[in-house]
Each structure stands twice: as structure tokens, then as C-alpha cells.
Design a protein around this nucleic acid. Structure first.
Lengths: 315, 315
DNA sequence: CACCTATATACTCAACTAGAGTATTAATTA
DNA sequence: TAATTAATACTCTAGTTGAGTATATAGGTG
């Protein structure tokens, strides 16, 4: 180990939000009992940041990386520094990435472990209708928080943010605001920024915590993916080679956290010509067997518009 | 000057795409005769990257920074390194930002200088209808380039990219694809990655060049801004305190590079309740005087949906 | 076998949106 | 006064979106 030079050295850290789908559930790859996202230093012998990230996620998790997209870069003093090295002058610049893959780690329950992302953000899952957590637990506390602010301008501002983010009143729920909702809950004191020890990772009511700011990075990744599926056909990065249209719908629903209208979803899919029949038919457990489809690559390598909008459903 | 230690040191460089509007034209702040964007190192005594950027843009350009948004981070070997220090092992991580401001530098023509961004990307201005440069100069060359590729799969792929990005055939023009178009022109050899000397900055036909990868960063900034105005009311960051609706329309047109339908633009604006009358009326040069409006801040501090979509017009 | 269940698939419908166009009004300037 | 420039008020039509109804096709169960 070498000591950093007298002038404060800068370290680059790469963090990955690695997403896969298993049994219609969105999974994210974690380390150390779900407390960390895979991350590590950028070695300067790599030609680009992405190759650095790939090399290293694969080495650490034995997991091939498919689609990769950059999320955000920050170097805030008070965010990364939490480990307790009070006098350490090293400056950390943290660059985060979103990665999609169809692979699944076939290991024991130990370290690199896939976790359902709704365990970290239980209020984000509206597939079964209004998440009861929001109405019963979150909204009352947020209202108390906004009412407790003395300044009346501040109070109105808080009320407005609550309404926009959590759909107070009869407003819509916007599934894209994952990060804003997390930040609002943090400001309101319902959710801590980071788990400080190994033992504080579980927080049943408002979701699992993570160390450092990894939970915030995860929120950023989910938000990015949810906006992306609306204009780029990225879902296919997460699907197996052949799939039924219902499977595809369940996949989009899992990511968006909302139920979709089945018939309209199908209309949309074939309007856009994103898929083609394989000829085969699904061997199913129950009900009428469905045709199998595959992603028709030549049509959509870099489709400009349209992607996969969301045919929402009220229910 | 200190030599870097034996282990290769990493430098963080911050680059800003600073945008303003003057006389209905989009302007970007440049240095050294338009060859560079303002940029400089991140000093590790700054608490965050943004404060680093602000401090330093203001010190270098005497210009206050308003709205700021991060663009992209990269550390590619072959991109930043162009200066010729062949053996220099310093690794540069470059973080770019988009900044909006209504201020205008009141100086002589010397160094920090606002330039119309369409001087760098002349093919991006479609306000007066189809840009003749595209039909007459660019498309023929791109077609020659795609036809010259031997492989037929490659040929089809190139044709498809040309069609999507530049609207070959009768397809639509998508104003958001600024970066993809620039990259396509670069691949086709119509545009160089960087100006290598002071004298190669001018390239009348396909726009002015910049040194390093600053022109690519500028493209990224324009693209981001063009997508952003569709769902967030960021135009107002660029407007004076009071303005007429036509001025507002011209501003959006300048950014998007397309003509808008006047009546529909107005319909959209007041549907969304983004502005309110000031009571005053414009002192005009010609024609019927228009009411003056201001951005109604309390309504839209963090509006979730809707922003300002673009009521396009064919003509 | 009749019947039930679960899914696939085909259509229809109404409300809303987006792009376009026409007509009218209100000021300034030649 | 006429010409000009721009603001403002409506209407129209095609397409999109969320929703609902109806029918088809499989496996399983009494």
C-alpha cells in the first residue's frame, strides 16, 4: 500500500446498478447482505470508464454485463465520506452506472446476491393498485411534517411537493419520480441517508437501507430505467430469447411498478413492429397456450421514436 | 509545478456549456476565438462538483451561473489526450455541465465571447424550413458513404441510421438527435473530431470546429436542452423578467431549431398556467402591442408533468 | 363428457390531443 | 385612410389513449 502524496489525491469509484428480471420481479445485484451495490476503483490502465466498470464487475461478481448506461457523477464531501476515517484527505469522485442483463447468478445464497428492488423501495410497487404503505403510513407522516413547518411559504411548498410526488388528493401517480420521492422522504426524516453499521440494514416499514449513498444510487437507476422504457425498447435486454406477450407485459409492469392494459399493450407492441413470432408455442401450466415471440433486431437497432410507451390501466 | 507521483495521478476537469439567448438566437459562451468551452480543474477544496464549477466559471468569465445540470463524464484515453504530450501519464476525467443564464457579458469582442451555436452545427437550424445544407451537401455525401461500404448488412445499417438521423426519404426530422447526428457525420468523415491548431477552427461548410472534444460536449448540451424543454419549463431560465408570448415562442424555436404553430403554442402555454400577465404592455416597433407576461413561479417550482411540449408546425 | 378456468385475441367506443386553418381585432406607420 | 404587423378567438380533423365487450383455445375436473 502506498500513502497518497501530500497534495490530496483523487480516487475514482465506479458503482453499478445491475438489473435483471426473475419470475416477473425486478432484481438488483447486491453485496454484503444487500447493504452495498457492486463498486470499486477505476484503475487508470483502462482505456475508458466503461471498460473499467465491466472488467471489474465481472471479476468481482463473475457476471457478464450487457447494456450499460452512465447515471451520475458526484464528489460531495458529506456523501461519500462516512466510513469514519476522520482525517483521511482522499477525495472520492463517484461515478454510477445502470446495467441490464438477462443472466442470473447461479450460486448459493452468499455474497453477490440478487434482491428484489422493491425491498428497498416498497412504496414504488403499484402493480396491485394503490400501495397501502403510501396511504396508511407515508402520507400521514408527510402531512404532519409539512404542517409542522412554521413558515407558510415553506408549508405550501412542502404540500405541493408531497402532492406531486406521492399523489396527494386525487392526482396521478408518476412512476418516474423515484429519486425525488426518496429525497422527499429523506428530508422529512422518514428514511435515513445511509445504514451506518451492518446491523441497521433492515428497516421493515420504509424499506431496507444500504451503506454509503448506494440506496440513492439505486433510486437513480430505477428512475432512469423507468423513463427509458417509454422511449427505447430496453426491456428486451432483460428478456429471454423467446417469450410470450404476457411475459413481456409482466416485465414492463415489474419495472414500471404499475399495471398495464393488456389489450392496449398488445396493440402498441405490434403497431411498433418490435417483435416477430418464432413459430413456437408456449408450453403452459394453465389457460390457452400463447405464441412465442422474439425481439426483431433488424427493425429496431436504433429506433428514434416511439420505443415502448405505457398503456396504463386504472385498476 | 509538481511532478505527479509514480502511480499515475488523476485530474478532474470540469467543462461548461453555458447557454443564453440574445435577439432570439441561442448563444454559447466560448474562449479563445470560439475554439474552447470554459473549463478548468476541480480543486479538491470544493465541497461539491457544482460549487467547483460555479466558482471557477465565474472567476474565469466574470459570469454568474444560474441553472446547472450535469451532462456526462468520461475518461477515454484517445479523447482528452490530444495536446501532444506523448509520454504524459496523467489521466484526465472530464465532467461536463449545462448551464442556463439570462445574463449577457458586456465586454469587448475579446475572450469570453458568446457565439451562436448554429455556427458549430449549421445543419441543426430548421427554423426557416428544411436546412438546405442537409439536402444539398450532407445527404449526398452520407449516401455515398453508405454505398461505399462493401458489407451489405453494414450498408443497410448505415442507410437506416442516415434515415433516422437526417430524415432521408420523407421521414420526420427529430430535433433531439443532435449528438447522434454529429457522431454520424464524424464516422462518415465529414467532420473532424477536433481542431488541432488555432488555424483549423473555421470550416465554413460543416460548421466551426473546436479543440479537444468540446464540440462534442456542446452537441451533448444542445441535445439535453432540446429534450428538456419538452417536459420541464426551463426556457424561463433564459427569459427576461417580463416578455411577450411571441418572444417566448421565438425563444423555444431558437432552442429547438424548428418553427412552432403560433396559435397552438399559446393554447399550450395558458393551458399549463405557466405564465401570468404583468399588466403592462410591450412598447413595440411595429404591429399591435402585446401583453407582457411573467413566469408564475408558485405554480411551477417543480411541476411534474407537461412542461412545455412543442406544438410543431410543418412549414 | 360437460363444464370451469385461465389465457389469448379481435373489435368497438368515447374522450382527448395535436397539427392545421380561418376569421377577427387592435395597434403603428406611411 | 390604407397598409402593415401582430394578438386573439374559434373551428376542424385525424390520430392517440384508456377502456370495455366479445370470442377463441387450451387444460383440468366432476
Amino acid at each position: 500500500m502506498k500513502l497518497p502524496s501530500a497534495t490530496s489525491a483523487i480516487t475514482i469509484e465506479l458503482t453499478a446498478v445491475l438489473v435483471a428480471l426473475t419470475a416477473d420481479e425486478p432484481q438488483v445485484l447486491t453485496l454484503e447482505d444487500g447493504a452495498l451495490l457492486p463498486s470499486g476503483p477505476f484503475e487508470s490502465d483502462h482505456p475508458t470508464l466503461q471498460t473499467g466498470l465491466r472488467a471489474w464487475v465481472e471479476q468481482q461478481t463473475h457476471h457478464p454485463l450487457g447494456y450499460v448506461e452512465q447515471l451520475y457523477t458526484f464528489a460531495d464531501r458529506n456523501r461519500a465520506a462516512e466510513g469514519g476515517h476522520g482525517l483521511d484527505q482522499r477525495r472520492v469522485v463517484s461515478i454510477s452506472y445502470l446495467g441490464l442483463t438477462r443472466e442470473r447468478l447461479s450460486r448459493g445464497p452468499r455474497d453477490p446476491e440478487w434482491r428484489n428492488w422493491y425491498r428497498y423501495f416498497p412504496w414504488e410497487d403499484w402493480r396491485a393498485g394503490t400501495a397501502p404503505l403510501v396511504a396508511r403510513e407515508i402520507l400521514p407522516r408527510l402531512r404532519k411534517w409539512s404542517d409542522a413547518s412554521g413558515d407558510s411559504a415553506l408549508k405550501r411548498d412542502r404540500r405541493q411537493r408531497i402532492e406531486i410526488n406521492f399523489g396527494d388528493g386525487k392526482k396521478q401517480w408518476n412512476e418516474d419520480l423515484v429519486l425525488q420521492r426518496y429525497e422527499l422522504l429523506y428530508e422529512a426524516g422518514l428514511v435515513p441517508e445511509a445504514a451506518t453499521g451492518r446491523h441497521q440494514v433492515d428497516a421493515p416499514l420504509f424499506g431496507m437501507m444500504m451503506r454509503h449513498d448506494h440506496r440513492r444510487i439505486l433510486a437513480t437507476g430505477i428512475a432512469r430505467l423507468r423513463t427509458k422504457i417509454k422511449y427505447r425498447p430496453v426491456v428486451f435486454e432483460l428478456m429471454p430469447e423467446a417469450f410470450t406477450l404476457l411475459q413481456l407485459q409482466r416485465a414492463v409492469e415489474a419495472l414500471a411498478g404499475r399495471p398495464l392494459h393488456k389489450q392496449n399493450f398488445r396493440r402498441l407492441i405490434d403497431q411498433q413492429g418490435l417483435v416477430e413470432e418464432t413459430g413456437a408455442i408456449s408450453a403452459h401450466t394453465a389457460g390457452r397456450p400463447a405464441k412465442l415471440y422474439r425481439f426483431s433486431r433488424q427493425v429496431v437497432l436504433e429506433r428514434a421514436f416511439g420505443g415502448t410507451k405505457l398503456p396504463l390501466s386504472r385498476s
